[in-house]
Simulated scan of single mutants.
Amino acid sequence: MLFMRYRAPLICLLVLALLSAGCASTTDLPGTTSQKKTTPTPTPGYGSIAITSSPIGAEVYLDGELKGTAPLTLTDIPAGKHTLCLTKIGYVESNSTVTVTADKETKVSKSLRQGKPKLSLDITGSNMIYQGMDPLMEISGTVRNTGEESAFETRLVITMTPKDSKEKNLKVTKIHVIGPLNPGDEKRYVEHLQLKRGIEYRGTIKCEYRDGSKMVSGASKSF
């Protein structure tokens, strides 16, 4: 009788307990994981670079890619750091890092320093050839321009000097014309000098090129 009297309230409590358990989120149950919301990475944005050079006409490279000649404005450049290179024949190359800001124009102005020729000299052979009474000296090698500017009227001055100072009047000098050498150019030379039999010589060879109204000495070697 007592059970029958409280049966209805007990059934109601049981139903409410079951409904509460069913409404609980599965993320609260043991062994389950909840998915966290991720914040999307913002895009870097784009800006522009306005480039001028002195002298004008320098080639502009951005991140290693040729973009044109200065003055030049580059647009739609991703924000961040970029490598900038300006180059012009006869001038020293300019390299720098430029930082681009989104929705802004970055101004870059570069003054290029005028370059100079830089001549290097190699001797690949120096042999004595005997023809008749007096020997013939044959000398060969290469000359190259590793500078930023062209070398004009390039020539080699080859001198054979007697080791005995009393025989200095027997010195032999010969000029070998190379001509213009642009940056990166290399030319081979072969020259012959007639010497005197029975005389010991020491040899020197030097490069020269014209700079305005004067001849300028470059590399030299002894043999």
Rank of each mutant, 00 (worst) to 15 (best):
L16E: 01
K36Y: 04
K67Y: 05
T75D: 04
L86R: 02
G68M: 03
C12E: 11
P44W: 08
K88A: 06
T43V: 12
T43F: 06
I49C: 00
S54R: 14
A70T: 03
T33K: 15
K81S: 15
C23E: 08
C23K: 06
D76K: 05
T26E: 12
I49V: 06
T69R: 03
E59H: 08
G22R: 07
L74A: 05
L86W: 06
E59G: 08
T33R: 15
L18R: 02
L86T: 07
G22Q: 11
L84P: 01
G45C: 05
T43D: 05
L86G: 04
S34C: 06
T38Q: 12
Y46D: 09
C85F: 03
T75W: 02
P9R: 02
V15K: 02
S53C: 09
G68F: 00
P44D: 11
T39V: 14
S20Q: 09
L72F: 03
T27V: 14
I77M: 08
A58S: 11
L29R: 08
T52A: 09
L72R: 01
S20A: 15
S34W: 12
C12V: 15
I56G: 15
G45S: 07
L13N: 03
K67L: 06
T32I: 14
P40C: 06
L13D: 00
I49M: 00
T33I: 13
I51M: 04
I11V: 15
S25G: 04
G45H: 06
G64K: 10
K36S: 14
L86Q: 07
T52V: 09
Y46Q: 11
K36V: 12
T73R: 03
G22F: 10
L14N: 00
D63Y: 01
